[in-house]
């Protein structure tokens, strides 16, 4: 672990459980993430896997500091960012980007694609960086004048990726970005991401519930269950020798396109 871009130590996230709050006094605390420690090496892809409710989305949001950690330290590129104020965080924000799960609700329906990509750059749509971002994700430049509803799901997800990479970030969190897509567009988006990681030297945290997708893209995988890391392995080892029972269960449940083993 010589060249870690992001190091997370002893991370804990708790929220107040308002459904069980007594009439007087504080609501009981609900622990979402518990004692999470891992690091992401520069120019590598980390897979974050888990079932629903395992805390993987909360972890992703904590990595981009959208969720405040209760305890633990986040060290990004040698700098402790756990307690940074909003003002101090701002220059770092453009180095850390998030791509959302549902591209339809993540893109403003009233803005053209060009304006959506230009907004975080604080630039005009004619800015060359907008065209470059569209080139990077393999969309025609003419798409800059279109609206999100004119695009297919796969194309919208590419716009989400274009918006994130236009800022030339070092680190991107991709939260279930292919789970709403057809297999064919899924294959396109995965290939695109793999190429971008290579060409732009990105570091990526790829959140997914689908282990078969993880294998294509990731170098290392952590498996979450009920807010705890139960497995942290290089991707090939995870598939050949999973150490935790839950990982074995996950692997066992993937429907392989192979009719010789029926359920």
């Amino acid at each position: 672990m010589t060249d870690a871009l992001y190091r997370i130590e002893g991370l804990r996230v708790e929220v107040a459980d308002q459904t069980r709050k007594p009439l007087f006094g504080a609501a009981p605390r609900l622990r979402i993430l518990d004692d999470i420690s891992f690091s992401i090496e520069r120019r590598s892809v980390l897979g974050i896997v888990g079932g629903s409710g395992s805390g993987k989305t909360t972890l992703g949001r904590t990595l981009v500091r959208l969720v405040e950690p209760t305890a633990g330290t986040l060290i990004f590129d040698g700098q402790d960012v756990t307690q940074l104020s909003d003002d101090a965080m701002r220059p770092l924000r453009q180095r850390i980007q998030l791509i959302f799960q549902d591209p339809m609700s993540a893109l403003n329906p009233r803005l053209t694609i060009g304006r959506i990509i230009a907004a975080p750059l604080r630039a005009k749509t004619s800015d060359p960086r907008v065209a470059a971002a569209l080139d990077n994700v393999g969309l025609p430049r003419g798409f800059a004048g279109r609206y999100p509803h004119e695009l297919s799901g796969g194309q919208r997800q590419r716009v989400g990726i274009a918006r994130a990479i236009a800022l030339r970030p070092d680190f991107i969190v991709a939260d279930e970005i292919v789970s709403g897509l057809d297999v064919s567009s899924q294959a396109q988006v995965l290939t695109l991401l793999a190429n971008l990681v290579k060409d732009l030297g990105l570091t990526l945290a790829f959140i997914s519930h689908d282990l078969s997708v993880i294998r294509r893209l990731c170098d290392r995988v952590i498996v979450l269950q009920k807010g705890k890391i139960v497995e942290d392995q290089p991707v090939a080892d995870l598939f050949t020798s999973p150490s935790h029972e839950y990982t074995r269960q996950l692997l066992n449940s993937i429907p392989e396109p192979d009719p010789s083993q029926r359920w």
């Binding site: 297999v183 064919s184 567009s185 899924q186 294959a187 396109q188 995965l190 290939t191 689908d210 282990l211 078969s212 997708v213 294998r215 294509r216 090939a236 598939f239 692997l251 993937i254 392989e256 396109p257 192979d258």
Partner: peptide, 14 residues
């Protein structure tokens, strides 16, 4: 285009 985890080297083709 359908991913198979048992065959990691096969590339995923749209």
């Amino acid at each position: 285009a359908t991913p198979r985890h048992t065959d990691p080297d096969a590339s995923l083709l749209p």
